[in-house]
Amino acid sequence: MSDVKKFLYLNRRAPYGTIYAWESLEVVLIGAAFDQEVSLMFVDDGVFQLVKGSDTSELDMKNFMPTYRTLGDYGVRHLYVDKASLEARGLTQDDLIEVAWEDWETEEEVDNIVEIVDSGQAIGVFEESDVVFSF
């Protein structure tokens, strides 16, 4: 087995109502130092984590939306969003933030690594992962 594992972070919870979304994001950030192949999957209320326009100023809570935008810099290669979950919540890709990615060695660039996937594609993502983190 190669040293690099494919990590998949499974996010199924809305932000702010509980700490799970934020603390799982902290794992992703720390995990970047380990040079694994990292993807995130947003399902169910987890898709709300990527909705743009968040303003937490009146709650005195940390707004971690800007952190998602930097995930490309932390080595995250894919942010997959479950299509059915998104549609069930009346959302489209336009409602979601964009996350850019660049490979510093090859200078390969991707404008937006937030990708909407159907169940079949998602099954493929789960299958090819080596480790699934749930929070």
Binding site: D3, K5, F7, E26, V27, I30, G31, A33, F34, Q36, V131, V132, F133, S134
Partner: peptide, 17 residues
């Protein structure tokens, strides 16, 4: 630190949550 979780996931054959 959280690195201990990542390391555990890398070193182990299975992670059970």
């Amino acid at each position: 630190g959280l690195g201990q979780l990542i390391e555990a996931a890398i070193q182990s054959d299975r992670l059970v949550v």
